[in-house]
Structure formats: structure tokens, C-alpha cells
Design a protein around this nucleic acid. Structure first.
Lengths: 196, 196, 196, 196
DNA sequence: TATGAATGAGGATTCATTCAT
DNA sequence: GATGAATGAATCCTCATTCAT
């Protein structure tokens, strides 16, 4: 097994552990056990616990982002693309289960640092990247006349906010039937809000 | 100063400290210092750090919830009420600043417990209480013909999701000008999505 | 209620609490509750927790010692006196129940201090007082010819050791039937050991 | 140094510290220092302070018990065996010095738990094991006609009580000359009490 | 490269004691 | 005299990280 594979395996183990225990209670030794390696070995691949956090976030975000770009590159109509993106995100979230909570905690931490250091959060960049992807699709739709004229940035933000919030609902409700009903109506409302 | 006032003062101090340091790094001794009392005194008012978390969440949520109920009780039109509620929430969030991160962390914790214990999270109850308030307004609007027929639960969830998500945007962007533009467009989109 | 009565009440409360919880886990506030007074009031009657320990020991020992002196002053034969004393001690111990454990802990503490400070333990004095009482009776018995000649000090010590040890048996066995059988045989053996 | 040796070294360090300071005042960090290791290392070998208590007791008791079984297995006459056992116990106690106080405190704690939980104390089992060893020797002596007929259980208890009690005398008197005189007479009295 | 034994900084919590009312 | 709110010293235990093997 090469270096990258093992790194990946540790990340996956870490996701399991942190999802189960939380960022703070999740111990390095447990990650090692979950990955089937020794505690010390973790430090051959990551400089610190902190670095594992970043790696997890990167991994999780990259996964989802690549999927979204694939959708954006299809020849679907803008409206269909948007729906597909929303659905993809939501499916991904459901698949992550409460692993979402990890990302939340990581972001909360990042947010706090951002607040103090006044450094533009790395996270903000990711949001922007996502937002741009949405904005592009919205503009296409406006050009084709499918969507009404709008402040594309604002609407993109609405969409992202909507996905974020929906994730929480899922974690808290976890009552799948109700969740899917809600989700369907929520998507419909959103689409209606931007149609011409 | 009576017992309740002092409890409140500790809660406020705790919010300061946790917002600055995070739930884990925020030390009891710092809370005590912030409140201008001795470390031991904190334990006269709260059994444990955990109990402070709950108290903070309760306090923060109650604050916002009472404000919303006041709005719901006015004689505004349903559409105006909804806009007022969204705005109130967002202002509140901005006012909380990154104190929002505390609530997020507390919720992440609660979510994890909920996931493991399969106990209905206390939090879910709060979401429901909020959702019901929204649903009531939506129904009024449908009756008056302002709003289109809809799955009220789904739309209410969308609204909540939108507010949750927008909070995050604020924490991460903190670029007020852009945030307010986004917010304005987002509210408009949402309202358009439900109008007749 | 006068000062002495209240002091006594606190001592009794303390015995209850310490017997239940141990010397260290037994809290001043619990003693106060048990005595039906305020925490601060305890300090009107005792300078410190330490002082309560001493008072308890004194109280418990005085009780038993007075009873023994009463027996010593009777006109029973030396052998009968000795038996009566052993029985009285044992009954007292049983009556104290695991309150004996308090005395043990107090003594262990005293023993340690004695060891370090090289001060003659106050306790040693009490042992001597008890030993002298026994020695007096043994000498009477030797004079009357009931007892064999012996090193009275050694035998008195044996008797005390025997009572101490039997107390432990009771605490540990607490199986009354077996305890009383053992006690009867033990007393018989002891008496046989000193008879002419 | 292997795992067991190190465990043993910690136990020995703990005995030193607890004997000096008492069970409660004796700090883990002091044990570590005494053992020449880091504080955290102690917890690699023992789950908690409580577990150290148990280990000490076990170690101390096993030591003495093995010695006694060796005596019991010799070809000495029953009377000589009994004397040897008493002497061995007493020498051991003297060797332990005020380390005896640790055992006392541990037992006091155990006794209290026993009292509350109504669980047969582990300690009771150890007493029984000791008692059986004595009873076996007493029966041998009765068979050979060296000892008078007796309730063997009762006499065994007397012997144990005598040893327990004598230990205390030593801790409190620590005046060796007097102690040894007393001990000699006490053993003689005991033996006389059971001879035919 | 892999390991896990060793480490010690760090923090929540307890409770005897004080003292203003 | 009686009270209990306030205090902070004291200590167990956790766990990220290091490093010798």
C-alpha cells in the first residue's frame, strides 16, 4: 500500500471516529485502531491532529465539489442542472450521515479563527468556488430566459444556505419520510422563486 | 444582586469566553474572571460546564423565539410578517456575531448524541416549535390568497434552512456590504417562491 | 439548647455522616444538614474538621471507658469482671456498627502522625489507661489465685488486641450467628489461657 | 524492565507514599516521582488511584500469605507451626512498619462498602482463606492430642484477632523493647489457652 | 518505516473555611 | 449567635505528541 492510500485510510478512519465521538473526544489512538495501525504511525502521515481536521474537510469537500462540477459540465438545461445539484448535495449529506457534524465542527473552529485573525477563512474561498459554479448556471438560465433577472450572487447564496440548513434538518429529524417530503417541497419552492 | 441575575451574568460571561475560545478551550476559570467572581462560585450556579452549555443555548434561543412570537402576534399581513421574521432572525444573528458558533457547537454535540442515543433531541423540539410558528403564518397567507397552495411544512423548513445557512454565510463572509445585498435578494427570492 | 448539647448534636451527626461516607468523603455540609443547622454554625462549635475527628474519638472512647470503669468497680470476681469487660466491649462494638470504621480511620491518621512526629500519640495514652484497668484486675486475680502468674502487661495487651481484632471480624463478617459463636469460643480460650 | 517489574516498582513507590501521607493525601504525582517516572506513566499501569489501592493490598496480603503457607507445609508439630505463624505475622508487620496503616485504611474503605452494598467483601474471602489455614493446623493438633477439643473456627478467629490487634499495638507503641515482651507473653497465653 | 511506552501540560471539579449580613 | 454565599487551593485524570527501538 503506498503512501497516499494509507493517508486516505487514516482519513477515513478519522471520519468514523470523529463522527462517532466529536472532534475533541475523538482520540488519535482510536483513529489508529480504526485504521488498523499503530498510534505513532499516524504521525508519519500527519503532523498533528489539527492537520487531520484539514485533510478531512478537504477530502469531504473535494468529493462533493467534483461531483458538482461534473453535473455543471453536462448538457442539461440550467433548471435541471440546478435541481440535479441540489439533489446531489442532499444525497451526499444523507450519505455522510452525521459525518456532517464533523464538517460543522471544523467550520465552527475555522470561523472562530477567521473572526479573530481577520484572515480570510480558507473556507470562504471554498464557498466562493461553489458560489461561482452556481452563479454560472444561473446566468445561463437568465440568458436562455428560463430564469428571471436577479442578483445572481444573492440567489446563489440562498441556494447554498438552503442546502446547509437542510443538512441540519436531516441530522436533527433523521425521520427520512418526512425529510424527503420537506426536501421535495423545498426544492420546488426554490425553483419557483427564480423562474421567469 | 439576586440569584437569577447572577446566573444571567455568568451565562453572559460564558458566551463571551466560549465565543472567543470555543466550547472546549473556554475555561471555567476564564468565565469566572469575566464575570468578576471566583472559580468556585460558578459551581454554585451551575452543576457543570455541560450545564452552562445548555443554559446558553436556552437563553439564546428563548431570546430569539420570544421576539418572533411578538412579531407573529402583530396585525401585519402574512407576507410582511414573514419578511419581518426573516429580518429579525438575521439581525439577531448579526448581533450575536460569532456567538452563533457557540450555538453551532452545542447543536453539533446535541446532534451527535441524538444520533447515538436515538433519543429525540431536545433541539428537534425547538425546531418544531419554530416550524409551527411559520406554518401558522403560511396558512394564514394561503387563506388570504397571498400565498400559493403549498406543503407548508416543507416551505417552513426551507425558510429555516435558509436562515441557518445565511447565518453561516455571515460568520464566514463578515463582509457586511455584500452580506446585506445577498440577504435582500435571498429574501426576495424566497418570497417570490411562495407568492400566488 | 445550650452550647454543650449542640456540640454533642453535631458530634452525633458527624458520626452518622462519617460512618456512612468515610472521614474524607464526609462533608461538613452534610454534617450540618444531619444536625439540622447551617454549615457556618458548625464552625461556631469546632475550629476545623480535624477538631471534629478528635471530638468524635474522645466521645466514643469516653463512653466505653466509663462503662468499663463501672464494671471494674463492682464486686464481681476478677474472672467475671474480665468476662464482663470483654462482653461489654464487644456489645459496644456491635452497637457502633460500622461506626467502628470511623475510629479506625481516626486512629490510622493518628498513628501516622505519631510515626512522623515521634510525639507520643494521644491514643497511646488511652491505650495505657485501658491497659492499666485490665492489669489491675489481672493482679487481683493472681492474688486470689484465680489466675496463673503472668506478665500482666503482656496479657492485658493480648486482651486488647483480641478485642480490636474481633471488632474487625464483626465488621467484615456481619454474619451475626457465626460471630457470636466465634466470640464465645474466643472468650473461653482467652480465659483458659490465664487461669491457674 | 518488563511490564510486571515496572508495575511492582510503582506499587512499592505507592506504598512509600501512602504510608508517609495517607491514602488521601498521597498524590499520584508523588508516587510517580518516587518511582522515577512521569505522572502519566502511572496510568499506563493502573487505571486509577483506586486500582493502586487494590494492588497494594493484594501484594501485601499475598506476600504474607505465601509465607504462611510455606510454614503450614513444614513438618513442624502443630503447636510449633502455630507459634511460627504468629511470629512470622508479627515480624512481617514490624517490617511493614506503619505501612500497616495503608492496609488498615484500605480495609476500612472496603468494610464501609461491604456494609452499604451488602456485597460480601473481597476481604472477607481473604480472612476465610487465612482462617482455614489456621483451622487445618488446629485440627491436626487436636488429632495428635496436643490441643484440647475446641471450636476451631472460634479459636482461629481469636488468633487472627490477636494478630490484628497486636499490629496496632506496635504502630502505637513502637517502643520495641516493651513490644517484644508483650508479644512473648501474648503468644504464651494464647498457646496455653488451647493446649490440652 | 512502524510502533507503543513514556510524558506532562492542562482543566474540571470539590469542599473546607471565611465573613458579611 | 446563625447563616450560606463566595472563595481558591488542591488533585485526579486525559491525551496529543515524542522518540527509542
Amino acid at each position: 500500500m503506498n503512501k497516499t492510500d494509507k493517508r486516505m485510510r487514516i482519513i477515513e478512519a478519522a471520519i468514523q471516529v470523529f463522527a462517532r465521538e466529536g472532534l475533541v473526544k475523538g482520540k488519535i489512538v482510536d483513529i489508529a485502531k480504526e485504521a488498523g495501525i499503530g498510534k505513532g504511525t499516524v504521525y508519519e502521515y500527519f503532523r498533528s491532529k489539527e492537520e487531520i481536521f484539514s485533510a478531512i474537510e478537504e477530502s469531504l469537500m473535494d468529493n462533493i465539489f467534483q461531483a458538482l462540477e461534473k453535473i455543471a459540465a453536462t448538457s442539461l438545461s440550467p433548471a435541471k442542472k440546478l435541481e440535479a445539484i441540489m439533489n446531489k448535495c442532499i444525497y451526499q449529506i444523507v450519505a455522510m450521515g452525521h459525518g456532517l457534524l464533523i464538517v460543522t465542527e471544523i467550520w465552527a473552529q475555522a470561523g472562530r479563527e477567521h473572526w479573530h485573525t481577520h484572515q480570510p477563512a480558507n473556507l470562504a474561498g471554498k464557498y466562493d468556488r461553489f458560489r461561482e459554479l452556481i452563479v454560472r448556471i444561473l446566468r445561463q438560465g437568465i440568458e436562455t430566459g428560463e430564469f428571471r433577472p436577479m442578483n445572481e450572487d444573492g440567489v446563489a447564496t440562498l441556494l447554498m444556505a438552503f442546502i446547509d440548513g437542510l443538512s441540519w434538518q436531516y441530522v436533527l429529524l433523521r425521520d427520512s419520510k418526512r425529510f424527503w417530503e420537506i426536501k421535495t417541497e423545498a426544492v420546488r419552492s426554490f425553483m419557483k422563486g427564480i423562474e421567469r
